[in-house]
Simulated assay, not measured.
Amino acid sequence: MKIEEFKNIFYWEWSHRMIGRFIGVSFILPGIYFASKGQMSRRVAKQTLAITSLLGFQGFMGWYMVKSGLSDALMKEPGSVPRVSQYRLTAHLATAIAIYASTIFVAADIIRQNKIASGKYPQHVASMLNSPALKRFRIASHSLGALMMLTVLSGGLVAGLDAGLIYNEFPFMGEGIIPPTNELWSDDYVKPTDNGKWRNLLENPTTVQFDHRTLAETTATLSTVLWLYSKRLPLPKNARLAINTMMGAVALQVTLGISTLIYMVPLQLAAAHQAGALVLLTSNYWLIHSLRRVPL
């Protein structure tokens, strides 16, 4: 590696760390100020402390992830390159999403509670949200959010294993929709202490990519079903806008995912695909919060 190539990698990493530290400071210092001034309810103070703890844990996870790429064992084979653990990468991603989701829900809850306390929350909207007709839809939106999260985390495994650099076609993987069984459940990833071939799900690039595709296709299909179902329900304007936005985000993310794959993961498309995942999750969080019951 030439010095200019190293500088490029170094400054990406340095910038990422500086942004992470800035996020921590920009959250913790105002939190201390508002808490000291008595401008937080007991509940919000506890939530803020929990998010602060997550921020600290995220810093640890970042160090722990980078540390996994410094092992000499990774460089024994000819042509090897340093690589962080896909497990630690995915855990780092999961913590980041947990922080992001927590801030969204806490902030949205503060805004809603303020409207309720000041009597500015529309009564007709509260009545619609408390309708028994929305119970199944509310449960389905939560379940879909869990599936989206699982799909994103499987994408972390794909990134960690460079699994997007194989089978660069869609919808097929080789000669069929499903790759050969001996590739999906290869003995190459089985350790003597394993009970079965389950490790393929986490360490075999072919299996990991297939799982991510399957989860993404399932998410897109169920999102479409939920969107169609929503048209039969008396939703408040905010919830209607949220489900429509989520459907648009699904279409965008599917397009970005397929494009990233068939063009062999160029940096720009890969970054857009990651951003698309965050947009999709955000739209789901919006939907979930917009459906929460309101005390009359």
Rank of each mutant, 00 (worst) to 15 (best):
L233Y: 02
L161R: 05
R213D: 09
P179K: 11
P132A: 04
L150E: 10
R138E: 06
E203Y: 02
Y167D: 12
I177T: 12
I177N: 09
A163F: 02
S154C: 12
M148E: 13
W198M: 09
P179H: 13
S230Q: 07
L165M: 06
D162S: 07
H142A: 08
N130Y: 01
M149T: 15
A163C: 03
L222T: 15
S143E: 12
N130I: 06
L228E: 06
A146R: 09
R213H: 03
R199S: 02
R213N: 11
H212M: 06
I139H: 07
I166F: 00
W185A: 05
W185G: 00
R199G: 03
T206Q: 05
L201W: 05
H142L: 09
A216Y: 03
P205H: 04
P234Q: 08
H142G: 07
L129C: 05
H142T: 13
T218L: 15
L228T: 03
G196R: 09
K231P: 00
P192S: 14
V225G: 13
H142Q: 11
F137A: 04
Y229H: 15
L215S: 14
H212I: 12
L165N: 15
K231G: 05
S186K: 04
I166S: 07
L233M: 09
I177F: 13
A163H: 01
M128G: 00
V190T: 09
T207P: 00
P192L: 08
A163D: 05
I177Q: 05
V152Q: 03
E169M: 06
A220W: 06
T193D: 14
L157H: 04
R199H: 02
N168W: 02
N195C: 02
L202N: 04
Y189T: 01
P205G: 08
L222E: 12
M128R: 07
A220G: 11
H212V: 10
T224Q: 06
A163G: 08
K231R: 13
N200Q: 02
W198A: 12
Y189K: 04
S141V: 11
G156V: 10
V208C: 06
A140R: 13
E183G: 08
P179Q: 13
T181A: 10
